[in-house]
Each structure stands twice: as structure tokens, then as C-alpha cells.
Design a protein around this nucleic acid. Structure first.
Lengths: 381, 381
DNA sequence: TCGATTCGTCGCATCGATTCGAGCGGGGGC
DNA sequence: GCCCCCGCTCGAATCGATGCGACGAATCGA
């Protein structure tokens, strides 16, 4: 090991040590171009001798103009994104496809320490842009993937466009020349509500995903509905209303079990007269629905005899045992894979395409016929 | 915008357009070195005019010799790592610390499609190395972090060492010159068992994390115990045995609720004579413990009246409501943060240090005194 | 045996930015 | 009035690898 400590050997040094030119040494490693087995072995031996372990990626990247890195923008709080099994499964499919092509996934926090929303009515001077993560501004990446919480007007998106980083979008918000991989959110919630209607339910409550970044919780009124900012939430809201008007719609700050539990406790709570209590709940996510199941259990209500509950996502929740949630299953891994392929397409210079993946309602044990008393007592429908 | 489509503007073009030298233009962006405000504005104006959005990271990286990227090796199956809330929380703390220093986290699958373990007794020719992920071999990174499933003999580790990539380790396995951030696993399980002893339990069962990569499930005998390969599992096993010998120890293939449920169903099942049924279970993880709670409920056993259950990790499990798991809390975010600081230390050229973070038993509602009948009937202890 | 190939190797420019030391011009001190 | 010094700008080398075009040698056919 004739290795000078402190400075790593370079291809040039290996070439010198092997008695060949740098170009030839490069050929020995890259395999691009003709080279005698003998020469290659000589180079490889020299490399081993110097402790050289392959070409420095940095040099290669500069030369090729590509970093082989795909940036994935996760929410402002990384933990938040990872706590969501949905996001995790998508990420899983994405890493899988990209990894097999030798592309790496770089985690990028979105807006850092995003303070309160900017004042209403954007004034002319966009000087004080909210602090965007430094990585967004300066990390090397060939493509960026936006999956969670894409807002119609986005500082993240703006930063990427400014840098001319191609973008792939994995959520409702359509972006000009960027490929989009969407799910049929709207048809999904519509189908879930239709399922509940067919079971005879008429007093259907809704637990929604966050409408925007405000992290509010409470009933959703028409005004709030109109200001929904998050694309997939908007679509799920619309899907529900395509089929029936919920008797109440409760917004949550995040897709977490505890928030679903809180919401359902309000919706089904003792202060709601039994004659007005919803007999079914459709939730925008499985975690929210699971929280609702737990709340119902705690309130002494039987699921599905007293209240039916449907979710959206189709994630595994073994801890809900023995119940199996009725849910609209999304092809999550497939979505990640589709995003990955969209990334490859962008890198190959293909025209951006829009993919919409289908969803499917899978009945479980948490939905059933409306309670007999209610069906008789309720004249409408 | 006098921008030639197809090729991005370079600093050289900007300099030319601004009528200054490249060096000066560089100064205008980096701010390193004296420069007149007037000159800088001129350069910035030229940049805006050409649609140039800051120096290309690739060039900068090559020059500085640093990529600003920290590789985090996740398991062979990305989804597996992310399904584990423990891993996620650690990752969270890590991303947070590194992000604030402008370092990016690159996700790296470990060994790809890892087939069965290599035959025993390594033969001289290490030719057929198990397929390591291409990213491990060639992605640019300044440091690599190994957190999950570090085996004492690791293809991943070998690949990194070969490339001379500095490593930071976040799990038991001590590695020569690498900083280590460990948790006091052994003291943790010991404390949990001591807690159970104090409550009068003598028939204590154990549900373990995987002992190695074999994904086995079933009782652990002495031979198997001796071959435990995964560092943190080994420590947790040892901690339990520091205080008491479990009446039975059941291995699981992964830290997942369903596996905890399966294990506890075996341990507490109807085929176990009640007089021999364990009155307490100590699990190596919270997810396993939660599965045990669910299994107990399904078997009609009351927790903690009939059986006490303790876990390890201290993660939030709102869906276990109304129970709150008795658990050994690890400072998970802190661990991630400590890993992040260790990375920064490595980059700063500091000597590697070993940090051991303390753990703390936090009693919940799932452990209680041993059932009266048992205490009386059991002569031993 | 000589010319036409072909195969393998080499030189050099290039990717894009940083940085060090030199140069130059102006202002202040003596 | 001269010189020195300070402050800003510039030139050129450098980081490490790649790839195009050229060149030398060996092979085959005539």
C-alpha cells in the first residue's frame, strides 16, 4: 500500500503508477471503449496497490453534468412525513425504482421553520420570501419530486423553478410542464360514500384531511371549503359531495390517529342527541378512520352495528385487530414506482405525461347496514 | 432574458456579460473576499438577465472536494426501515441537525436483494461478494451513517471502508475508528424486568427482536441465544438475564405489531396451562409489546390484571388507547441529533467519540401487581 | 513485401467553480 | 511632490474524470 496519507489517490496517480495514460486508466474502470485485458489488469493492480477504489463520483458528476441524485421534498417537519404510512409506502416504491437505476434519493426538508402564513393579499414586493431550506437552494439534484402538501402557490416550487430543476409532482396540483402522478381521489371518496348509502346510511359525517397548512381543527363551513388549498384534500371533499352532503364535516390538523379520535369524539359525543348522531363516518385517511373506530369503542358504540366507519388509503393496521377497516385502497407502492418512472422519463427527455392511478373500495368489518331503528325513524332518503 | 435554450448559463458567461472576470463574478456570489457593492450589483444584474441562478453545485463540490451529502444506509428493504417508528424518529433528529448545517441526507438501500447468508468459513477468494447496492459503491458522500441492522460482519461496512468513506455507527456494533452513538439497551431491559419483579412477577416471558437476519420466529434456546448477531438485540437479551431468567423467550422476525401479537398468542394461548402461564411479558420493542396487548385482549385476558406487559422504545401509540404502555423510553430524537453531531465531528476532523445515551423506564397502565392467586400459589421467589 | 485496415493507447480540451498571488490605481502620509 | 500601502480586480492553476480525434503498431489481403 504505497499510499500517501492525507490525500486520496487520483486516477492520474494510478495511471502514472501503472505506466499508462490517464485516458487508458479511465477506460479500465468505466469499460467504455476498447482495452486489452492485460492493460486493464495492470491498471487495476496499480489501483489496488495505491488503495484507489474507483473514480471519484464528484469528478464524474461534473463531467457528465449529472449528479444521479433525485431530491424528494418532504414536509417542513421530516418526522411528520415519515409518521404517515402512506408517505412511507410511496417513498418505498420510489426508492426501489430509482435505486435500481443507480439514482439516489436525497431528503429535502421543505420550507424551514415555516412561520405563520404571509399576510393576506400579496403585496407587490416579494422581497421577504419565507426561509426556504438551504438544500433546496443549493443541493445538486437532477430532478425534484414533490409529493406531500403541494400547494397551488408554493415557495418550494418557486425555488425549484428558479433553479431550473425539473419537477415531478405526485399530488393533485397540476404544474405546467411537469409530469403528474395522481390518484383518483375524487372517485375514491365518492365510492366510499356510495357504499354507505347502499347500506342505508343517510346521516353521514366526514372527517377531513387538512385543508391547508393552518393546522386547524373543527367543523368545515362553506367558506372554509371554498378556500381549501391542498389539492388531494379538495378532490376528496368533492368526491364526497358528488354523492351526498355530509351532515357534518370535521377538519383535522394532520392525518394522525389521535386527530381522528378527537374528531370522532366530537361528532359522536354524548352531547349529540342520539336522533341526530351520524350513523356513518367517512374519513379522508385510514389513520383518521382508525382514530374514529377507537373513539367509537371508547364511547361504547359498536362498530359497525351502531356506527359504520370507512377510511381511505388501504394501509395495514394490525393494531386495529380484530377489526379490519373498510377502506378505499390506493396502489401506494405503484404510485411510488410510477413517480420513479416519471423521474426516469424526465431524465430521458421525454414529454411529461399525466398518470392517474385507480383506487378500489375494499369492504372490511367496520361498515354495515344502518341500525334498524334509525332506518325506520328517518323519513328522508 | 437573453438565455440560449438548451445550455444553462455558467459563471463565465455571466462574468462576460457583466464585463468582469470570472473570479470577480465568483466573489459576487460567494461573498468570500472583498468586492464593491457596485460591482456585485452589476454581476447580479447580469445573472438575472441571463437567468443564472447561482453557482452550479457540481463545480463547487469538485473544487471543495466535498459533496455536502451524508449517506444513510437503510435496510435492504426501505419500506421495512420506515415502517419502524423508532427508525423514523431517529432519522427525524438526524435530518434536523444535518439540515441546519446545509448537509443533505441521501437514502441508501443496503445490500440489494440479499440472498441467503454466505456459507460458513470464508474461503480465500472473496470474488462473489453479495450484491451491494450501486449507490453504496459509487454515490458521492462525505460520511455514511449506519443505524439499522449493523452486523458484526457486514458487506455494507466493507464496501464503505473500501471506499474510505468515514462511518458513523448508531447501533451496538463497535467499529474501529468510527464514532458510536449507542443506547443503554442492556440497562433498559434490566430495569423493565426489575420493575416486573418488584410487582411480584416471577413467571416472566420475553418477546425478542430478531437475533439475526434470518427472520425466524419461535422459542429461543441457549444455542440460538449464543448465535445472536445483532448488537442491540444481544444487549437487550443480556439485560433481561441480568435480572431474571425468563420462563420463555420468543423470537420474532421483525419489530411489528402482528409479530408481537403472534408471539403473545403462543405464549399466553389456551394450550398453556393457566398455572404455567406467564403473568408478565417483557418485549424488546413497543410495537411487539402493543401486539402482545392486543393478543391478550383477544384472549380475554385483562391487562394488567391478568397479565402485565412492558415494552421498549417509548414511541407514541395513540391507537392503543385507552392503554398506555409501560415502556423503557429512549431519547430517539436525541439519538438522531447525536448522530448528526457525530457526523459534523467527523467532518471537522475530530477524534471519534463514543456516546451512550441513557434510557428511562416510564410506567404506564399495562403493568400491575401479580394476580393474587398466583402470588400465593407460587412458592418460589 | 507493401498498402489498407483495425485495434489499442495517448494527448488535450472540457465540465464549472474556487482561490491564491499578482497587479493596478488611488489616496494619504511624510 | 513622491512613495507606500490599502483595497479591489484579474489571470491562471486546480479539483478529478471523461471522451474525441489522432497516432502507432499489428494483422490481413493481395
Amino acid at each position: 500500500m504505497g499510499r500517501t496519507p492525507g490525500s486520496r489517490p487520483t486516477l492520474a496517480r494510478v495511471a502514472e503508477h501503472a505506466g499508462v495514460s490517464v485516458s487508458t486508466a479511465s477506460l479500465a474502470f468505466s469499460g467504455a471503449g476498447p482495452i486489452t485485458a492485460e492493460t486493464r489488469d495492470k491498471v487495476l493492480a496499480a489501483a489496488a496497490d495505491l488503495g484507489y477504489s474507483g473514480p471519484n463520483p464528484l469528478g464524474r458528476q461534473l463531467r457528465s453534468g449529472r449528479s444521479g441524485i433525485v431530491g424528494v421534498v418532504i414536509g417542513d417537519q421530516p418526522g411528520r412525513a415519515f409518521r404517515d404510512p402512506v408517505a412511507v409506502k410511496v417513498l418505498d416504491g420510489l426508492v426501489d425504482v430509482l435505486g435500481s437505476e443507480g439514482l439516489g434519493v436525497l431528503l429535502i426538508p421543505g420550507v424551514r421553520g415555516a412561520a405563520g402564513r404571509p399576510g393576506p393579499g400579496g403585496d407587490g414586493a416579494p422581497s421577504s420570501v419565507p426561509a426556504v431550506d438551504p438544500l433546496l437552494e443549493s443541493a445538486a439534484m437532477d430532478v425534484a419530486v414533490l409529493v406531500w402538501g403541494v400547494l397551488t402557490d408554493d415557495a418550494t416550487l418557486a425555488a425549484l423553478r428558479r433553479r431550473d430543476v425539473p419537477v415531478v409532482v405526485g399530488e393533485g396540483g397540476r404544474v405546467d410542464g411537469a409530469p403528474l402522478v395522481a390518484l383518483d381521489d375524487r372517485a375514491g371518496t365518492a365510492e366510499a360514500v356510495r357504499h354507505l348509502l347502499e347500506l342505508g346510511h343517510t346521516r353521514i359525517a366526514e372527517i377531513t384531511l387538512p385543508l391547508d397548512a393552518d393546522e386547524r381543527s373543527g367543523p368545515v363551513d362553506a367558506a372554509r371549503l371554498a378556500r381549501a388549498d391542498r389539492a388531494s384534500t379538495r378532490h376528496r371533499l368533492a368526491g364526497v359531495r358528488d354523492v351526498a352532503e355530509p351532515v357534518i364535516s370535521w377538519e383535522t390538523p394532520a392525518s394522525l390517529v389521535e386527530h381522528g379520535r378527537d374528531a370522532a369524539t366530537e361528532i359522536l359525543g354524548a352531547w349529540v342527541p342520539e336522533s341526530e348522531r351520524p350513523t356513518a363516518i367517512v374519513a379522508h385517511s385510514d389513520l383518521l378512520a382508525a382514530g374514529a373506530v377507537i373513539a367509537a369503542r371508547e364511547l361504547g358504540l359498536r362498530v359497525p352495528e351502531d356506527v359504520s366507519i370507512a377510511g381511505f388509503d388501504g394501509i395495514d393496521m394490525p393494531w386495529l385487530s380484530p377489526d379490519v377497516l373498510t377502506s378505499v385502497h390506493q396502489p401506494l407502492q405503484a404510485k411510488g414506482a410510477a413517480l420513479g418512472r416519471a423521474v426516469l422519463g424526465v431524465l430521458a427527455g421525454e414529454e411529461p405525461t399525466c398518470t392517474t392511478l385507480p383506487v378500489e373500495l375494499v369492504p372490511g368489518t367496520t361498515t354495515g347496514p344502518v341500525p334498524a331503528g334509525v332506518r325506520a325513524a328517518d323519513p328522508q332518503a
